[in-house]
Amino acid sequence: MSFEHRDDTGDRFGMWLFLYTEVILFSGLFILYAIALITYPQEYITASNKLNVWFGAANTAVLLTSSLTIALAITAIQRNQIRLCINLCVATIGLAVVFLINKYFEWSYEINLGIYPASETLREMGPGVTSFFNLYYFTAGLHGLHVLIGATLIGVVAVMIARGKVTSERYVLLENSALYWHLVDLVWIFLFPLYYLII
């Protein structure tokens, strides 16, 4: 006779606690941003104008849509629509890839302009613009890493759903991966206006 030890609510709460620590991690970077913004208000406007708003806006739409698809995936698994649930997971991963490809083009463009950490061009633009771009690369880079981890997690869970290891009876792994994915979206919701839309 064996007991199944299982506590889905506890599992989800554990995930939420972890996400709170993630928020604290990113908020440190946002504090640095806020201090630099009040120190170099003019330079931050100059620097922000060098970013392409449309890259940022497109990526915002992509991330919001991917948050929708993974939220729908949970309803799908609860209703035992396994095929649909897997497709929604795949769509989420697809959107994550679109996000990263978009980021690749965006960063390539900026690096071609000579804007990258410790570049000559940035040194000539002074400490304000330099601090903006250093924080921009670090925050967006850390966020991009989260996109990569989140997409991998969802990929693993999608395989487990296909193999019947995650089912409509037991889907807390999908819920927790989705929670992580929504955090990625939450960070971008703040990152986008602060870096791209300062005028």
Binding site: S67, L68, A71, I74, E175, L179, D185, L186, F190
Partner: peptide, 10 residues
Amino acid sequence: SALVLFVFMH
């Protein structure tokens, strides 16, 4: 964020 937290994140 509130919309994402309360609805998307259940």
